[in-house]
Computed example of a mutant assay.
Amino acid sequence: MGSSTRLAKLISTIAFSTYFFIIIFQVPIFSVPCRKGICTTPLELTSSQLIASEVVPLFIVKALIYPGALARAIFKQKTIPSYRNLLHDFNTRTISVASELQRLEVLAGSYLSVGGAILGLIKPGRMGLFGILLLMWGLIRELIMGKSGFSYAKGIQIYPTIFIALVSAFFSITRDVRKIIRTFNLKHIRKAKHF
């Protein structure tokens, strides 16, 4: 029983690390029009909304988006961005409130995804999983609307990395992983008894 608990803890730690990396280091998982122009990560969408609403001080938003900007600069072999000019790209375009409200699931899913990554440092939970599920639901709904001819759904894409985020968010919940391991152990024991 102790080995299954340790295995579940190991699997959930690796899964949460993957989820945290995808969210905080801003690996592109979708493409949607936003105040920045085109947002490709939940953190970009959340940050552009936080900057526009002016609810959170800018230094907190900068602290959130700097790891992703740093990783992107290293990956693309560009100069490391300065902390002072970090928000330069976020004030380039205004988008109507009506079009943001039409993407409410995407916005709420982005907030929950980012919150799940940050709060998961204390204790991984279901917030990140619900965020990714809500995000996927909103994006798929938008894509269906786009095929139906609605103009506000144009420019939306889903990247395959969103499925990696979904799987890692699910497996970061230790209790669920422990239940899966116990289920497989019980099936293995029952098969061994039959032989």
Rank of each mutant, 00 (worst) to 15 (best):
G2C: 01
S4T: 08
I11M: 12
T13M: 02
I14N: 02
F16M: 13
F16S: 02
S17V: 11
T18R: 02
T18Y: 07
P28N: 03
I29D: 05
S31T: 12
P33F: 13
P33I: 05
C34A: 14
K36G: 11
G37P: 06
T41L: 07
L43A: 15
L45K: 04
T46L: 13
S48T: 15
L50F: 14
I51M: 08
A52M: 10
S53G: 01
S53E: 12
S53I: 09
I60N: 04
Y66K: 02
A69Q: 02
I74R: 00
I74W: 11
S82L: 05
Y83P: 01
R84H: 11
R84M: 05
D89E: 08
N91F: 05
T92Q: 07
T94H: 09
I95H: 04
S99C: 03
R103Q: 10
L104V: 10
S110Y: 08
G116M: 02
L121N: 13
G128L: 07
L129T: 09
F130S: 03
L133G: 09
G138E: 05
G138K: 03
L139Y: 06
S148E: 14
S148F: 10
Q157S: 07
I158F: 02
P160L: 09
F163R: 05
F163A: 11
I164C: 03
A165P: 03
A165T: 04
A169G: 06
R175G: 14
D176Y: 13
R178T: 07
R178H: 14
F184D: 05
K187C: 06
H188G: 01
H188F: 10
K193Q: 10
F195D: 14
